[in-house]
């Protein structure tokens, strides 16, 4: 086993363990935003897509690179934006309580 492969496998295993540790403490209420947030993180695939786009030298490879870059960037942009939108909703609930104390449901 080469040194590089060993390093990569070690990084993989450690990251999985860190992932388990961090995620298992997230309350059920936040499962959707957390999943969507994780979804955005796998948008990191766009990094790989950018790197291969630069190696492309022929139509077949241009095609594959384009697919990878396009899909990867949909993933990363959409993932972060939608998670942020969702979480805005979780950070505002205090306001309406005060408002309703002032009277009325408007």
């Amino acid at each position: 086993m080469s040194q590089e492969l060993y390093t990569n496998v070690a990084i993989f295993v450690m990251s999985v363990l860190v992932g388990f540790e961090v995620i298992s403490k997230i309350p059920a209420t936040l499962h959707t935003p957390m999943m969507s947030g994780a979804n955005a993180i796998h948008g990191a695939v766009v990094i790989g897509a950018i790197l291969i786009a630069l190696e492309a030298q022929s139509p077949l490879f241009y095609g594959l690179a384009f697919i990878a870059v396009f899909l990867g960037s949909v993933n990363v942009a959409g993932g972060y934006v939608v998670t942020d939108r969702m979480l805005t909703m979780f950070s505002k609930p205090k306001k309406p309580k005060n408002e309703s104390d002032d009277g009325g449901d408007k």
Binding site: N8, F12, V16, H42, A44, V45, I47, G48
Partner: peptide, 22 residues
């Protein structure tokens, strides 16, 4: 692993763990 890029390995592994737990 394929393109030897640790940024992808780490991000992917974190999400893999998250998805598995859920």
């Amino acid at each position: 692993f394929v393109i030897d890029n640790q940024a992808l390995i780490i991000a992917g592994a974190l999400v893999g763990a998250a998805g598995t737990i859920l």
